Amino acid sequence: MNASKADPTPTANGSLPTQRRTYSIGELARMFEVTPRTIRFYEQEGLLAPERRGQTRIYHEKDRVRLKLTLRGKRLGFSLAEIREVIEMYDAMPDGNARQLKRLLEILADKRNNMERQLEDIRLMQRELDDVEMRAREVLERLDH
């Protein structure tokens, strides 16, 4: 377990934090079951911003959360641009900015509408496949008799 030096900045309640958790690229890769190359790609795309110590990347909790949001966004079919926008909102929302939350809801509604259209397309394709299969079986049955 890596830990950075104690941060002398007081927390919100006025107490001094002990140590902040840091992560290596390998630790994050194992934690999220991705390759280090994937993590470097997201860094190159500006979704992660690790601290650099020489050639070593030091990832902080903020990077871990950003990676988690990025991977969740990819699973849900978000583009990198949409993920970036959501992450930037997340970073800027400690006070729950209403404008940012409304924009997030717009993005989610748009994604939900796209998924509904895709589901309907899939249902239509299934009906068409069922129809072709039924006809092929009927023809095959006539040929066998």
Rank of each mutant, 00 (worst) to 15 (best):
A3V: 12
K5N: 13
A6D: 03
A6H: 04
T9C: 03
T11G: 04
N13C: 05
G14V: 11
G14A: 10
T18C: 05
T18V: 12
Q19L: 11
R21M: 02
S24K: 01
I25G: 04
E27R: 11
E27Y: 09
L28I: 00
R30Y: 01
T35Q: 08
T35N: 08
P36I: 08
P36R: 01
I39D: 03
F41P: 00
G46Y: 08
L47G: 00
L47A: 03
L48R: 01
A49L: 13
P50K: 05
R52C: 05
G54M: 07
T56F: 12
R57I: 08
I58T: 03
I58D: 03
K62R: 15
R66D: 13
L67D: 02
K68N: 12
K68A: 14
L71G: 01
R72S: 09
R72L: 10
R75I: 06
L76T: 02
G77W: 03
F78M: 10
S79I: 06
L80D: 02
L80Q: 00
L80I: 15
A81M: 07
I83G: 03
I83H: 06
E88T: 06
D91T: 08
M93N: 10
M93W: 07
M93P: 04
D95K: 11
A98D: 14
A98M: 10
R99P: 00
K102D: 15
L104Y: 09
L105A: 15
L105C: 09
L108A: 15
A109Q: 15
R112K: 15
N114F: 04
N114K: 12
N114T: 08
Q118V: 11
E120P: 00
E120N: 07
D121T: 12
D121Y: 08
I122H: 02
R123K: 14
L124H: 09
L124I: 11
M125E: 15
R127L: 13
E128R: 14
L129R: 12
V132L: 05
E133S: 07
E133R: 05
M134P: 04
M134S: 08
A136P: 04
A136C: 08
R137E: 03
V139R: 09
L140T: 03
E141T: 04
